[in-house]
């Protein structure tokens, strides 16, 4: 069983489009595969998706295993799981990574049960101990600014789901070449217990993950009324509004605005962290933002550790001034702010 070889990445595609997290995982998987001196493979399931195999190679894979079937047109646990298990049992990888998306977590949990192996959830750091060929998958441990490294010593493959937006994708390199292996899956639609009747995209709700600027407020805003300043600044900038878990629990924002381990992971160009202490569960969701501007009255708040610019001060004093100055600056320059 410990003879398993190779690093695999489950490549999630939705309607023929590869999810960003899968490309990130190809980047992370490439590093692990190089250290272990084994090939990196992408696992691709769907209906008419073969042409995506090339993309997967451009982003770092040496091999792509493809399973195509009309039954795989839409994601369903029962069909996707069967395809993945078929490949894993036949080709026996040693490491197998999945994006921690609803579908990625879903298929990984089912596959781990069938293969009777370990699955580390919501990983934010990956490394490998080369000598023992051990995957070191680390995740924030509940409470405290602490990480736990989870190991799976005696079972293969070693599996982990990985948070979107924490790993880096490689540059797309069209000079890369690789091998495509096709397998067929013997399932008929009549045997399926689950049907997807309809997929409804919520287009009105712009995902926070797509925002270029996010203004995120924490418990330090004091109350819901003061939190209005966060909305006001975001409104002026055409930015997304985010909150910490404590803010969501307090009912100042709905859960889909929560940023962090149990909310969204975001990497905007500019991230305002206002009245936020900077607990690890929050940091894992935002620390890869390009510019982080933190305002906190406690000079020792951990948020300053990840911030590009920090202000030690009272947000309730700084924000109204900032809002006023911003309005003036744009008025003077005659700049029109068009909201995204």
């Amino acid at each position: 069983m410990l003879d398993n070889r190779g690093v695999w990445v489950y490549v999630e595609q939705n309607e023929g489009v590869i999810e960003g997290v899968s490309l990130e995982l190809l980047g992370a998987g490439r590093k692990l595969a190089d250290k272990l001196e084994v090939p990196l493979a992408g696992i691709l399931l769907g209906d008419n998706v073969r042409e995506l195999a090339e993309e997967i190679i451009f982003y770092g894979a040496d091999e792509v295993y493809v399973v195509e079937s009309p039954v795989l047109k839409q994601y369903r646990t029962e069909s996707y799981m069967k395809g993945v298990i078929l490949l894993a049992e036949k080709y026996k990888p040693e490491i197998f990574l999945y994006g921690a998306t609803p579908n990625g977590k879903d298929v990984a949990s089912a596959v781990a049960t069938d293969l009777s192996t370990g699955l580390t959830a919501d990983t934010t750091m990956l490394d490998v101990e080369v000598e023992k060929r051990l995957l070191e998958a680390s995740r924030p441990a509940f409470g405290g600014n602490i990480m736990a490294t989870i190991l799976c010593k005696k079972h293969r493959p070693q599996m982990a789901t990985v948070r979107p937006k924490v790993m880096k994708a490689l540059e797309r390199d069209t000079a890369r070449t690789g091998r495509v292996i096709e397998e067929s899956l013997e399932i008929r639609e009549e045997d399926m217990r689950t049907k997807v009747l309809e997929i409804v995209k919520d287009v009105t709700k712009k995902s926070l993950a797509d925002a270029h600027i996010i203004v995120c407020g924490g418990k330090g805003m004091g109350d819901e009324r003061n939190f209005g300043l966060i909305h006001e600044l975001a409104g002026l900038l055409g930015a997304g509004v985010g909150g910490t878990r404590d803010v969501v629990e307090a009912g100042w924002l709905s859960h889909d605005h929560q940023i962090g381990q149990t909310g969204e992971t975001v990497t905007p160009k500019i991230y305002f962290a206002i009245g936020i202490s900077g607990a690890i569960q929050h940091l894992v969701g935002m620390k890869n933002s390009e510019i982080i501007i933190a305002i906190n009255k406690d000079p020792n708040a951990p948020i300053f550790g990840v911030s590009t610019y920090g202000i030690v001060g009272d947000a309730l004093e700084v924000l109204p001034i900032l809002i006023k100055q911003f309005k003036e600056a744009f008025h003077e320059k005659g700049g029109e702010v068009t909201h995204a």
């Binding site: 009777s116 192996t117 370990g118 699955l119 580390t120 070191e136 680390s138 441990a141 600014n145 602490i146 990480m147 736990a148 490294t149 989870i150 190991l151 799976c152 010593k153 005696k154 079972h155 690890i280 620390k287 982080i292 951990p302 300053f304 550790g305 990840v306 911030s307 590009t308 610019y309 920090g310 202000i311 030690v312 001060g313 009272d314 004093e317 700084v318 001034i321 900032l322 100055q325």
Partner: peptide, 29 residues
């Protein structure tokens, strides 16, 4: 249980960036 907790560690403290000085007016500017 195939998984075990190997080790617990505090992630290295990031360095942090530039602190903006002055009063609230200067900082906002």
């Amino acid at each position: 249980s195939p998984t075990i907790v190997g080790k617990m560690f505090t992630p290295p403290k990031p360095e942090g960036g530039h602190m903006l000085d002055g009063n609230a007016d200067d900082q906002a500017k």
